[in-house]
Simulated assay, not measured.
Amino acid sequence: MDQLIKKVEQWSIDKGLDKGNSFTQFTKTIEEQGEIAAALCRNDIDELRDGIGDVIVTLVILAQQNNMTLYECLEQAYREIKDRTGVMSKDGSFIKQADL
């Protein structure tokens, strides 16, 4: 995974995206999330895999543009959720204890 992320980061540098506008990059992430939604609606596993990968690419670049790494961001998020308690709703969403 580390090598693949480094390849994405280098691709971003080669294309000048690492110096791009973070808001523009964020909107690209949202666009790619829409493709995930479409793939889920169509039950298209190949497009779902591609969409998830595309979202990760956009997030790697967004982190890079802000002098962060995807690892740092994921590590911070995990620290926040690791001890979280809550319940699963009827529709399969996790509701944290603080929101109950």
Rank of each mutant, 00 (worst) to 15 (best):
M1H: 12
M1W: 09
D2L: 14
L4Q: 09
L4E: 11
I5M: 03
K6P: 01
V8Y: 00
E9G: 02
E9W: 01
E9C: 06
Q10E: 15
W11H: 09
S12Q: 00
I13E: 10
K15V: 02
K15R: 15
K15Y: 08
G16C: 06
G16T: 02
L17R: 01
L17Y: 06
D18L: 04
D18H: 15
K19E: 09
K19N: 14
G20I: 03
N21F: 05
N21Y: 08
S22R: 09
F23R: 12
T24P: 03
Q25W: 03
Q25R: 15
Q25T: 15
F26I: 03
F26G: 03
K28T: 05
T29W: 06
I30G: 04
I30P: 05
I30M: 10
E31Y: 12
E31L: 11
G34N: 12
G34V: 02
G34L: 10
A38G: 08
A38Q: 12
C41E: 15
C41A: 14
R42W: 12
N43C: 07
N43S: 10
N43P: 04
N43Y: 12
D44E: 12
D44T: 08
I45N: 08
R49N: 10
R49Q: 11
D50C: 05
G51N: 02
G51I: 02
I52E: 02
I52N: 01
G53L: 11
G53R: 12
V55A: 05
V55E: 03
V57R: 01
V57Y: 01
T58E: 03
T58M: 09
T58K: 04
A63D: 00
A63T: 02
Q64A: 00
Q65A: 02
Q65T: 01
Q65N: 04
N66T: 03
N66W: 04
N66Q: 15
N67R: 09
N67W: 00
T69K: 00
T69P: 01
L70Q: 00
L70R: 00
Y71I: 14
Y71W: 10
Y71K: 13
E72W: 06
C73A: 08
L74F: 09
E75N: 11
E75T: 01
A77C: 04
A77K: 06
A77Q: 04
Y78M: 07
Y78D: 05
R79S: 11
R79D: 11
E80G: 07
I81F: 12
I81H: 11
K82E: 11
K82A: 04
K82C: 06
D83I: 00
R84K: 14
R84P: 00
G86V: 08
M88T: 14
M88R: 06
S89N: 11
S89F: 04
K90C: 04
G92H: 09
F94I: 15
F94H: 08
F94Y: 12
F94W: 10
I95S: 07
I95R: 08
I95P: 02
K96Y: 13
Q97M: 12
Q97T: 08
Q97H: 14
Q97E: 13
A98N: 10
D99C: 13
D99F: 15
